[in-house]
Amino acid sequence: MRYRLHIPTTLDQALELKRSTGGTYLAAGTVILVNHSHAEDLISLEKIPGLKSIEDSGEAITIGALVTFDEIEKCRCIMDKLPSLHQAACLTAGPQIRHRATIGGNIGCFSPASDAVTALVALDAQVELYDGSYHRMPVEGLRELKDGSIITSVIVPTRFCFSAFEKVGKRNAMSVSVLNMALAGDGKLFRLAAGCTAPHVLFCSRTSALLSTDAVDMEKAKDALVSEIRPIDDRWGTVEYRKAVSRNLLEKLVSEAGL
């Protein structure tokens, strides 16, 4: 594998390199380098200042794109206020990879199996993008990075008094999810997200609506969930298994939420 490595020190330099070389942004490289990307130009974001902090504004926690999973795992305010994201970070890969891999890189991979993205979608998080100016978009709707936009941070509201995350893997570490699910609730409204059930992490809107009613009908919610998700048979699991476990995990999360 041969490539040119560019190391810009500002976001504008990075954008310019992206436009001139058509290269690929590189955060930690735990996906790009392992998958032997054929990218000829890699644009490292590592030396750009301002992408590595975690800030709690009271209403939201803003996590810089280059914050590592390991830092999320050890961050007190995330542990306290965003337990589902904390749990998702703890269950991602293994300690060595968590020490290197970043939240922005993880979002930018657009993996349907991302544990962190499932937690973020349920938490109604937004990403901040830079393409010459700053924009915000819900993580939920993000499918691609247009015009070389750079993810600079993810903004996670802390209004949910309940949040929980569940992961099903084939083993207890270094495991791609077979299914993952996150639930967040502010007492009235609940948001459910599921991974590995569609080409992207899915916000389960109909199920969320059913969970946000006064008297939750669990069977109806489970049926709604199974009709909402679109899993496939692959090397990790079958449609049948994913549907069965989706129902079971929903029940477990709802019972944890005390609904």
Partner: peptide, 27 residues
């Protein structure tokens, strides 16, 4: 619990240590 090589048209579905599931120290 987890290890297997499966074939489809004679081509193995498993081709790396990410998808051939050996137990880790956590297992």
């Amino acid at each position: 619990l987890s290890e297997q090589v499966r074939y489809k048209d004679g081509i193995s579905m498993e081709n790396s240590l990410a998808n051939y599931i050996l137990p880790t120290a956590m297992d």
